[in-house]
């Protein structure tokens, strides 16, 4: 098998990362689309897509640990400590893990008013994902560009709802 797939870990790591990012784009787009009266039904699938984004991110991390870094502690430790693109990736994963755990009905009830502000951290996770992509560019910028094109408008659309700007945007 090694003959035909010299570096399976790298390949799978890339694919799982792409899928994780696709689901992140999808869940954020759904938030926007779900506001349109006739397209409200998409809100029903938002949780599922959000969880898919988390599971692919988790899979991506597990593939990195086992198939790519071979569970070498030297390798992983130096990445986690020194490589900015790794720790912004981990930040995105941690945020999504918290959001996944608090995505259930009972947790929504328990958190009440605090649920929405907490889940807005998804936008921070998206920024971290963009940083994760840009920081690891060697020469080929294509992936970083594609996801920037998809995520930037979705991030900008959220600016009016930031607490600092809310007041200002309400006036106009």
């Amino acid at each position: 098998m090694g003959q035909y797939f010299p570096d399976p870990g790298k390949l799978l790591m890339r694919l799982s990362g792409i899928w994780a990012s696709v689901f992140v784009v999808a869940v954020m787009a759904m938030t926007l689309i779900g506001k349109i009266e006739s397209l409200r039904f998409v809100n029903r699938y938002r949780r599922f897509i959000g969880l898919a984004a988390f599971f692919y991110s988790l899979l991506h991390f597990i593939i990195y640990l086992i198939l790519f870094a071979g569970l070498s502690w030297t390798w992983i430790a130096s990445d986690l400590i020194e490589k900015p693109y790794i720790y912004v990736g981990v930040l995105a994963l941690v945020i999504m893990a918290i959001l996944a755990v608090t995505s259930t009905k009972p947790m929504m009830r328990k958190l009440g008013k605090r649920w929405k502000p907490l889940h807005r951290f998804m936008y921070l996770a998206a920024i971290a994902i963009l940083a994760h992509l840009w920081w690891q560019v060697k020469d080929d910028v294509s992936l970083a560009v594609y996801f920037s094109i998809l995520l930037t408008p979705l991030l900008i659309s959220k600016i009016p709802t930031l607490p600092v700007y809310k007041h200002f945007f309400k006036k106009i």
Binding site: F5, P6, G70
Partner: peptide, 23 residues
């Protein structure tokens, strides 16, 4: 001497195994 993206302390000797890379 580390590179900003790749630690240079170890390497993955290709081809890797089915489950584990040869670090």
């Amino acid at each position: 001497v580390d590179h900003p993206r790749w630690s240079q302390q170890q390497e993955r000797r290709l081809p890797g195994g089915v489950l584990f890379p040869n670090v």
